[in-house]
């Protein structure tokens, strides 16, 4: 029974230690991140994303894989949208004109592909690195 007490004490210690050191993690500032300025009050730091490195590693050459253009419900083949920000179509909240909100668009764009190819980060903190 004392063992349980010690165990609980250990967990408590772990918590305090972890909270105390949580703001001192260095070295993430220089990472290349996605721009979060379109969000009102982002709760997490922007996703870490090196555009050219990613595409090179993933072997993506066509821009419209990500920078697609939709006409109502159908994707317009051959056209791409790399000159306009994602938030131009994907509003912050889903609405009848655009069913996919900005954050969902980002999440699905990256993660679905990573799941399909079984490569790359898929968990929240793997992109939103603190």
């Amino acid at each position: 029974m004392t063992r349980t007490l010690v165990f609980m004490g250990f967990i408590l210690f772990l918590f305090t230690a972890v909270v105390a050191f949580s703001n001192t993690e260095p070295g993430t500032d220089e990472l290349e991140r996605l721009d979060t300025s379109a969000f009102e009050k982002p709760q997490r730091p922007g996703a870490v994303f090196g555009h050219d490195d990613h595409n090179e590693m993933a072997g993506i050459e066509d821009c419209d894989v990500c920078h697609h253009v939709y006409d109502g419900k159908n994707r317009v083949e051959g056209e791409s949208s790399e000159d306009s920000p994602c938030s131009e179509c994907h509003s912050l909240k889903a609405n009848p004109e655009n069913l996919i909100s900005l954050s969902v668009a980002y999440h699905k764009r990256c993660r679905n592909c990573h799941f399909e190819t079984n490569k790359g980060p898929v968990l929240c903190g793997e992109c939103h690195i603190k």
Partner: peptide, 17 residues
Amino acid sequence: ITGFLAYHQFFFYRQMV
């Protein structure tokens, strides 16, 4: 506990989630 540790990304992030 695991949710807390994962959120803070202290260590073993993937395993923690």
